[in-house]
């Protein structure tokens, strides 16, 4: 069956893209889960939608603009929660529909509206090209490098934010860097998983890894293994049953987590 997939260029690209998306989301997932930032992952995905819409409307590379809108969204969240002392989740709840509305209004003026909105909402792995694969490789290497460089700061931030700040860790900088990394991850993965389904790739591996890991580095390794496994199985099932890969990977991930949770209470 795998050799069949590798016969076709577009399937080969789609296969590697889905595995790489899994890796990218899995690396950032433990941070999202430990810091209870699940909602922000979802929020940045919706903010990226505004960037996608602008990209489509002006016929320019969506990635660059989507990263800008996603980062802008996360910085606004940071700004509102730091400056106005608005709860982070309330700020996300307030800004998410704003960015989504901007995207919908721009797309409603575009001739490609109906076809593309579905692709980006639910993902369309078959639209992925070689550029997307290289972009994912670049994102993964960048995230790994930054996480490695800031490993102590991030660990202290996650374990004891208040005291990390007391001992001199620049918490605002760590938080902002993490929000930017989440935004870039979201944009790199969104074509494969779609805005709506992205949350599963970003949350479930972290939940899985949290239950098994006995060290901070192990958390990331388990998270990546989990997403690689479900992306592989999900892609294979979607090919076999001729169904959409994005939702199949999400369902595979969910079912795998259910089985795991019932075994390891």
């Amino acid at each position: 069956m795998l050799s069949e997939i590798f016969q076709y260029d577009f399937l080969r690209v789609a296969f590697f893209a889905s595995l790489l998306s899994g890796i990218a989301a899995a690396i950032i997932s433990p941070i999202v889960v430990y810091k209870k930032m699940e909602f922000i992952g979802d929020g940045t995905a919706h903010a990226a939608f505004a960037g996608l819409a602008i990209g489509l409307f002006f016929d320019v590379d969506y990635r660059f603009i989507a990263i800008i809108t996603a980062v802008l969204f996360s910085l606004l969240i940071s700004f509102f929660s730091n400056r106005n002392k608005i709860n982070e989740n309330s700020a996300i709840g307030m800004l998410l529909p704003v960015f989504m509305s901007i995207g919908v209004i721009i797309l409603s003026k575009s001739s490609t509206y109906v076809q593309d909105i579905t692709s980006y909402l639910f993902g369309d792995i078959l639209l992925v090209n070689l550029n997307d694969v290289w972009f994912l490789v670049f994102v993964i290497l960048s995230i790994i490098s930054i996480l490695y460089l800031l490993r102590h700061e991030i660990l202290f931030f996650l374990a004891d934010e208040e005291m990390a700040e007391f001992y001199g860790v620049n918490i605002k900088l760590v938080r902002t860097v993490l929000l930017i990394l989440i935004s870039i991850t979201v944009v790199s993965v969104v074509k494969i998983s779609g805005i709506i389904l992205l949350g599963a790739l970003l949350i479930i591996p972290g939940l899985f890894a949290k239950k098994l890991s006995k060290s901070f580095s192990a958390v990331f390794i388990f998270s990546v293994i989990y997403n690689l496994f479900v992306s592989f199985i999900g892609f294979y099932l979607s090919y076999y049953f001729d169904i959409s890969p994005g939702p199949t990977i999400v369902l595979t991930s969910f079912v795998a987590f259910l089985i795991f949770s019932s075994i390891k209470k």
């Binding site: 430990y34 102590h152 660990l155 202290f156 996650l158 374990a159 004891d160 934010e161 208040e162 005291m163 990390a164 001992y167 860790v169 949290k210 890991s213 006995k214 060290s215 901070f216 192990a218 958390v219």
Partner: peptide
């Protein structure tokens, strides 16, 4: 103030 879920080891905690 500590998030006990985060797998931080004793020596890493003191390192802070």
């Amino acid at each position: 103030t500590i998030n006990r879920e985060v797998p931080i080891k004793a020596h890493e905690f003191v390192l802070m």
